[in-house]
Design a binder for these strands. Structure first.
Length: 921
RNA sequence: GCCUUGGUGGUGGAAUGGUAGACACGCAGGACUUAAAAUCCUGUGAGCAUUAGCUCGUGCGGGUUCGAGUCCCGCCCGAGGUACCA
């Protein structure tokens, strides 16, 4: 019998389905284990070879845990709202829901081919109204709660209102907007309903807020940074500017401290936790108000982590978007400031930060006053100050901060030393906190600690500033000016947002004629006709962002069909939290922070049992793709869809034209004028593309699909090959060379059961000591390596085992049975087939996992390498367990040692038992 | 720029501070074959010597150690993220 993967694989796929092998119950006597993959966005390009990498690893782990006696939940679903389906809708008019279902079906059939042990009865889709009903429901809870600092948790807004009615907001210790006015009970009670509602928005955990966005006037829409390339829109190449817009936001900053704290209690990689800590960016400092020189009633507030350096301030820098810029600029400087603002508005935040070494800025002509010494400080604007962080204004201390120093040198501003320990500040800034202050008024002679406290006290006494904790973390923008997302369950009445009634959930997406913004620049939902709350009030027209649905989906898997609750208490109490979460580092500070935030909120409400939803997280490295770029004469460069290029990275003109017909990014590009065509020997025109290795993604047009490989080699081979590529945590570019090695291994495994003539080889002879050693070495290695996620070395271990069994001509049932169980998590199809061939009853997943017996692993002798001064010069064998001093005594008499010692004496002999010997001469 | 992460043969990679390159791919030579494919066997870090053997070698420069791919310090380069891709 020959190894025929396609036959075996369809046979067992059918068996698993008919026997519901992967159906999981909530409950039972076995211990539970919840394994979760980050769910995919079902793109039109289908599953690419990067997706299954993590899924295969978790599938191996799930099957392994199951064989070890756990009740394993291993679900899968789709993050099915997203831009690509909407783009396709804009181009073709096809409703995104239609595209999405089609794409999901493609994904599903691809996933099925790989043989995952997912329990599909628990599938979720974020774009399904039955699912997003609960996303909207959670949004409503956020709207109805505020964060109480005394209780350190979310409490009901209705309680807050009760408090306002009795005592106003003076004694309320809650997270709220910076500019929240204080009100007395009388003032509150005198407010109209509308005024009260507007006031409460200062406290709600989700609220409308002004935020900067990439606005593309030509397209009438907001773009992601991803859609902006070189300062213009990727599609069409239109100019993009930064614009302030009213957006729904989530008050994630309220949870900043608890999000930091929670990191200490979860088993996530240190690097990932560090990224979250840096993203949250807690810094202790002070806010200080500077009076405007011409009008002391105008104050400019800055946040600084080094208030001790305040006597070294020689200028002030505002973000170009700072609200005071226009009013303080003098007539003489107006033109310069306007030009600079225009220039920065055309650049994204990333652009602005990434040119950090190039100093740019403009002088407003205005001055402010240093509150400590009354010094007149010139006010500049510069793009290294970001509007979104802190107050959008910094006090510049060139002697202590390198960016300020660069700026001062460029604009010829003074640099004042402030600490006697500062090094030569004419060549670079020195941010030391050592030494004692000089040139520093009331803090002269003090140390860093004394000075900071003295200054803060001075400021607080005069109401000019205060000690403050600042977070880099900003409130998360929650609106998207798009169609294909969850509708926000809010309607507007006289400019005030209200929640719709809970009984009206889900608020479903209305159908619209075109998936574009309206003529007046409103989001696509503005096109819906007769879409009014109670036929009267306008619904919120923006939709929720991609991260909404993914912030709680792990709970839905526990009880996916429930239409009364997002998940039942019984299901939540049984599964509690995810035991193992696997996904890419690219989600480190997006999804993984937002979902922790929602989880803490749900925990505060008593709706979920754990403060952290994912106990352990493993970062899978990304499979990278090879992208190709076309450079236009205009200076723009664009990704080219890889399937249109030839193997030499050339793009021929006919292919280019074919591509432009299906890809509207190329609209407006002049085929003749903008592209530097070359001509080959046959007279055909082509252009050479530039390759680059980067993440595999549909948006980079570099995806590789697994289907062909599976058709050719089978799913078992594909699974093992993906694991064999390298450690799961490492990023690596995709390559198919080498898959034949894994294919050869599977054939070799098969050949232990049938020879090339189809003769059945399996026998019941007693295994020898050597054969047991081969098997148990493999058991031990595979066991250890699965536990530490070293799946690539597991595959090597299997190869070694099969190579050695083959060399020993071993086809003994006792050996092959155990090897088959061991192999089952990796290559489930061939394992099921082998399991029945060996005379057992399927499924192999119901077998007992073998344990390594140390007794089979010990050898009679240990071969010691002998090093002279650390360099290996030979080896010698000692019986296992030979004492250290016996070995030491034997060393000087050995040939190699004598040769190298050659007269000079032995200084030292290092013997590491069971390892090696080093002779120092 | 900032945060995170990685850099080992021609390639993917292996290596609790203890024989660098396991296991594969590729390549070369051989067997089988009319021939090719498939399969099997042998060799394969670089250099010198071509027998023994020797020297160099884990991005670069230092350091700790009997011993460093592994630990420490300083650089260089790639990748991911950078708040509307998901």
């Amino acid at each position: 019998m020959e190894y025929n993967p396609s036959q075996i694989e369809s046979k067992w796929a059918k068996f698993w389905e008919q026997n519901q092998t992967y159906k999981v119950e909530n409950g039972g006597s076995k211990p539970k284990f919840y394994i979760l993959n980050m769910f995919p966005y079902p793109s039109g390009a289908g599953l690419h070879v990067g997706h299954p990498l993590g899924y295969i690893a978790t599938d191996i782990f799930a099957r392994y845990k199951r064989l070890k006696g756990f009740n394993v939940l291993n679900p899968m679903g789709y993050d099915s709202f997203g831009l690509p389906a909407e783009q396709y809708a804009i181009q073709t008019g096809t409703h995104p829901a239609v595209t999405t279902v089609k794409n999901i079906n493609t994904f599903r059939s691809q996933l099925d081919k790989i043989g995952f042990s997912f329990d599909w009865s628990r599938e979720v889709r974020t774009s399904d109204p039955a699912y997003y009903k609960w996303t909207q429901w959670i949004f409503m809870q956020l709207f109805n709660h505020y964060f109480d600092k005394d209780a350190q948790k979310a409490l009901k807004v209705s309680d807050l209102v009760a408090h306002f009615e009795k005592e106003g907001n003076a004694k309320v210790n809650a997270v709220c907007d910076e500019d929240t006015p204080s009100v007395s009970a009388a003032e509150w009670n005198a407010m109209s309903e509308k005024e009260q509602q507007i006031f409460l928005l200062h406290y709600r955990l989700t609220m409308p807020e002004e935020a900067y966005v990439n606005w593309c006037p030509a397209m009438g829409s907001v773009l992601s940074n991803d859609e902006v390339k070189d300062g213009v829109s990727e599609r069409g190449g239109y100019p993009v500017e930064r614009k302030l817009m009213k957006q729904w936001a989530m008050r994630i900053t309220a949870y900043a401290d608890r999000l930091l704290e929670g990191l200490n209690n979860i088993d996530w990689s240190e690097s990932l936790k560090e990224q979250q800590r840096n993203w949250i960016g807690r810094s202790q400092g002070a806010s200080v108000k500077f009076d405007l020189a011409l009008d002391p009633s105008v104050k400019i507030e800055v946040f600084t982590t080094r208030v001790d350096t305040i006597y070294g301030v020689t200028f002030m820098v505002l973000a170009p978007e700072h609200e005071l810029v226009d009013s303080i600029t003098t007539p003489e400087q107006r033109e310069e400031i306007e030009n600079y603002k225009k220039w920065t508005a055309s650049r994204s935040e990333v652009d602005r930060m990434s040119e950090g070494k190039k100093v740019t800025g403009a002088f407003t002509g205005a001055y402010c006053i240093n509150p400590f010494d009354g010094a007149k400080v010139p006010i500049y604007i510069a793009d290294y100050v970001l509007a979104g962080y802190g107050t959008g204004a910094v006090m510049a201390v060139p002697s202590g901060d390198q960016r300020d120093w660069n700026f001062a040198k460029h604009f010829n501003l003074p640099i004042i030393p402030i600490l006697d320990a500062q090094k030569d500040i004419e060549t670079a800034a020195d941010n030391t906190k050592e030494g004692r202050y000089i040139n520093s008024g009331i803090i002269n002679g003090m140390t860093y600690k004394e000075a900071t406290q003295t200054l803060i006290n001075w400021l607080e006494e005069r109401g000019l500033g205060k000690g403050k904790v600042q977070y880099r973390l900003r409130n998360a923008v929650f609106s998207r000016q798009r169609y294909w997302g969850e509708p926000v369950p809010v309607y507007w009445k006289e400019g005030v947002p209200y929640l719709i009634d809970e009984s009206e959930l889900p608020l479903e997406l209305p159908s619209i004629d075109e998936y574009l913004p309206t003529a007046t620049g409103e989001p696509p939902l503005g096109r819906a006709t007769d879409w009014k709350y109670k036929g009267e009030y306008e619904y919120e027209l923006s939709t929720m962002p991609g991260w909404a649905g993914s912030s709680w989906y792990f709970y839905r898997y526990m009880d996916a069909q429930n239409d009364q609750e997002f998940a039942s208490k019984a299901a939540l109490d049984y599964w509690r939290q995810v035991d193992l979460y696997v996904g890419g580092t690219e989600h480190a500070v997006g999804h993984l922070l937002y979902s922790r935030f929602w989880n803490l909120f749900l925990y505060d409400l008593g709706l979920v049992p754990e403060k952290e939803y994912a106990k352990k997280l493993v970062n899978q490295g990304m499979i990278q793709g090879r992208s190709l770029f076309i450079h236009l004469k205009t200076g723009r460069s664009l990704h080219v869809q890889i399937q249109f290029a030839d193997e030499k990275d050339r793009l021929f003109k006919d292919k280019y034209v074919a591509m432009t017909q299906i890809d509207n990014r190329f609209e407006g590009i002049d085929t003749e004028g903008d592209i530097a065509w070359q001509t080959d020997d046959a007279g055909k025109q082509f252009v050479v593309l530039t390759p680059e290795v980067e993440k595999m993604s549909k948006s980079k047009y570099n995806v590789v699909n697994p289907d062909d490989m599976i058709a050719q080699y089978g799913a078992d081979c594909f699974r093992m090959y993906e694991m064999f590529l390298g450690p799961i945590t490492d990023a690596k570019p995709w390559s198919t060379s080498g898959i034949t090695g894994v294919a050869g291994f599977l054939r070799k495994f098969w050949s232990l059961m049938y020879d090339i003539n189809g003769k059945f080889l399996v026998n019941d002879n007693e295994p020898t000591k050597d054969e047991l050693k081969i098997l148990h070495t493999c058991i031990k290695k595979v066991n250890d390596d699965i536990e530490r996620f070293g799946f690539n070395t597991c595959v090597s271990a299997f190869m070694v085992c099969v190579n050695e069994l083959k060399a020993a001509k071993c086809s003994k049932r006792a050996i092959l049975n155990e090897l088959t169980i061991l192999l089952a998590p990796f290559a489930p199809f061939i394992a099921e087939e082998a399991w029945t061939i060996l005379g057992n009853t399927p499924s192999v997943l119901n077998a007992a996992y073998p344990n390594a017996n140390e007794a089979y692993l010990v050898s009679d002798a240990v071969v010691y390498p002998i090093a002279i001064n650390g360099k290996t010069r030979g080896e010698i064998s000692f019986p296992t367990g030979t004492a250290k001093d016996v070995i030491e005594a034997a060393v000087p008499d050995m040939e190699v040692v004598k040769k190298w010692v050659n007269g000079s004496g032995i200084k030292k002999i290092v013997v590491v038992p069971g390892r090696m010997i080093n002779v120092v001469i």
